[in-house]
Each structure stands twice: as C-alpha cells, then as structure tokens.
C-alpha cells in the first residue's frame, strides 16, 4: 500500500504575533514553530495504517527551509521518506493543494492523510481540494478510522453526533483532533530519521485566488471591562455583578 501524509509547520499559537511589513502575514522572527497539531493525528493514522498493512509511507510538506523540522518529526514518527517542496511565500490553500498535486499526481497513492485544518489559518481546504484534483474519494473531519480493504470512518458532526461512512481506496481523509493518540517520536527513531531519504524540490505555485486586503490585531470593539487589582476586591466586584443580574 502506498500512503501519503501531507503536513504543515505552523507558528506556535502561544506566541505573540505582529503584522509583517507586507501587511499580509505576521513577522516570523523569534517565533517558535511546530508540526500542525491536526497533522500529528494524520501522521499517526498513516503510521498505524502502514504498521497494519505494510507498504510505504511518504510525508510531504510545502514551506520554507524551517519546515524541514516538521518533516523530520514525521520521519521519526514512522514515515519512510520525505518530500520538501521549498516555498518561501505564504501560499493560500488552493495554491498549496495545486503544488502538492503536481508533486504526487503520478504516484498513485492508495491513501492520503491530511490534518483537518491548519491551526494558523484554519481554512480546512487543502485536503479536500487535493482529493478533488486527484478525483478520488475524500472525506473530512475524521475521528475514527479503520481499514479492511475498504476504509470505514466516522466524521464528527455538530453536537457530539457522528456519521459513519464506508469508502473504497484510493481515498483521502482529513483528520480531526482526537482521532488517535499521536506517539512521541522515540529518541532512537529521531536519530534514525537522519538517514531516511529526504528530497528537496521546488515547484512554481499557481496564482492565488485570494487577495489579502488587510491584516491586523482584532478590534477592541465591545471590549470586556477588565477587573484587575487585589484578589479580594476582584471577588467582591464579581459577587456584586452576579447579584446585580440576580444570578447569585
């Protein structure tokens, strides 16, 4: 079985973000980067499937040089080889999907895993777009996954409800948090990852279909009243508010 997992390296959300000079993205200097959390579940699902069926697992990422760290993590978690599409521009979903498509269209993957969305942009488009480009079955927001010749998945819906689906391969699934328990890469596997094949390629991105008009911090509109100061004063203020609203 040929398996592909698509990952993205994203800025740690705990960081402080400042708008960069182009006004379309934030300043990346001094930020910590990590493997997108949703993609960790995708990598884990892919590695588990490989462990179940055997075969070959490739990990691909589109991004600047730093994204190599995220690829290394996926290799250490169990991917066999990595493809790094070097791209310094901040691509929109359609562009990213198209770049990945160009790299993999001839490869005939049986199963492709992606995160359901990236934690920096949260568009949730790349996986589904890629599935459409490849003209294969795709299903998003998967919280349970089984393979027995075909794949059986559960999609997470609203209000705790799930939809159970069955589909044939080749297929693409986008993984929601909680799908599995992503493993820690073990230390020996981190060292072994160094020896796994990793190719760096470039690929021209198509024009963006989106235009960023402005980027900035959220407005302070309707901003909350801050209750600061001494603990006991804070407590009495809150008690007073609750009483005023007849809630205590």
């Amino acid at each position: 079985m040929k398996i592909l997992v698509c990952i993205k390296q994203v800025a740690d959300l705990e960081s402080r973000f400042q708008v960069a000079s182009g006004q379309t993205w934030f300043n990346e200097t001094d930020l910590a980067f990590r493997l997108n959390e949703y993609d960790e579940f995708a990598v884990e699902a892919a590695v588990q499937l490989k462990e179940q069926t055997g075969g070959d697992l490739t990990v691909i990422s589109v991004g600047p040089a730093r994204a190599s760290e995220a690829l290394k993590k996926a290799l250490a978690m169990g991917a066999d080889q990595a493809v790094h599409v070097l791209e310094d521009q901040q691509l929109e979903s359609f562009q990213t999907a198209q770049v990945i498509f160009e790299q993999i269209k001839a490869q005939g993957y049986d199963l492709i895993f992606t995160g359901m969305q990236s934690s920096d942009k949260g568009s949730g488009q790349v996986g589904l777009l890629l599935g459409e480009m490849l003209k294969i079955n795709s299903v998003s927001c998967v919280v349970a996954f089984k393979y027995d010749g075909r794949i059986e998945v559960e999609r997470e819906l609203e209000g705790g409800l799930r939809a159970k689906l069955k589909l044939a391969t080749p297929a693409l699934v986008t993984c929601q948090l909680g799908l599995n328990q992503p493993r820690y890469p073990t230390l020996p596997n981190i060292m072994k990852a160094k020896k796994k094949p990793k190719s760096e390629v470039t690929s021209p991105a198509p024009a963006s279909r989106l235009q960023v008009v402005a980027l900035g911090p959220p407005p302070k509109a309707g901003a909350a009243e801050l209750i600061e100061g001494d603990l006991l004063a804070q407590v009495s203020k809150v008690v007073a508010i609750l009483k005023e609203h007849k809630l205590a």
Binding site: L13, L210, V212, A214
Partner: peptide, 16 residues
C-alpha cells in the same frame, strides 16, 4: 477571517 487562534484578523476577497 481570524488567524492564529484569534490573535490576528484579516480581510480578504477573491481575485475574480
């Protein structure tokens, strides 16, 4: 749209 967990916000339109 919001980005990076609500810490930034951007305004976008499609080219077409």
């Amino acid at each position: 749209q919001v980005l990076v967990g609500g810490k930034l916000r951007r305004s976008v339109k499609t080219v077409s």
